[in-house]
Amino acid sequence: MDLIDELRQAMIDIDEDTVDELLPRCIEKYAANDIIEKGLALGIREVGRLFEEGEYFLPELMLGAEIMKSSMNILDPILAESNISVNNTQVVIGTVQGDIHDIGKTLVSSMLTASGYTVHDLGSDTPADSFIDKLKETSSQFLCLSALLTTTMSGQREIIERVRKEGLNVKILVGGAPVNQRWADEIEADGYADNAVQAVRLIDSMVNQ
């Protein structure tokens, strides 16, 4: 088996030690973008698929994203040196005000970072102003709003209205336990994802439109 294939398999197996061991050897032998595209990215995508299939669960998805992130930290400077264009899509993400739930949002944030997006994670209990300020400051193309409570879902609507009023050119995605497509349509969000894997897929598809 090729080294990159081994790396991909180690990623799929959430085998952090093997990834750490294989990555420097891959760097000696292959271009950084090949290591990512043929190895790590394919691996994390398979991890996501296994999560959706119910073979993997939150801990595996989280660990997979963490391994991906730490590997990307090593590969990013090499990519920069070799002038290879990287994904420069930026995403602002946070849980709406009044809602302290973090985990779903953090997973989406981790999976997006693992997929090469630049993510500005504003944490939980985030006021509308902070979202607006960050969008303006970074000129991000996407905004992801999480709400876990039926009592805080309406916060998503308020922020969407604010963003539209400000005339910001940004696609807005919503998610969270009580959120569904019908709610996303009602509050005129651009998209809804049921889980972190779908969120990445949705943004991928919107970027490629």
Partner: peptide, 11 residues
């Protein structure tokens, strides 16, 4: 409820 049965979110 998952395809393979019932699991906590932690599996």
């Amino acid at each position: 409820k998952k395809k393979r049965g019932f699991f906590t979110i932690m599996g």
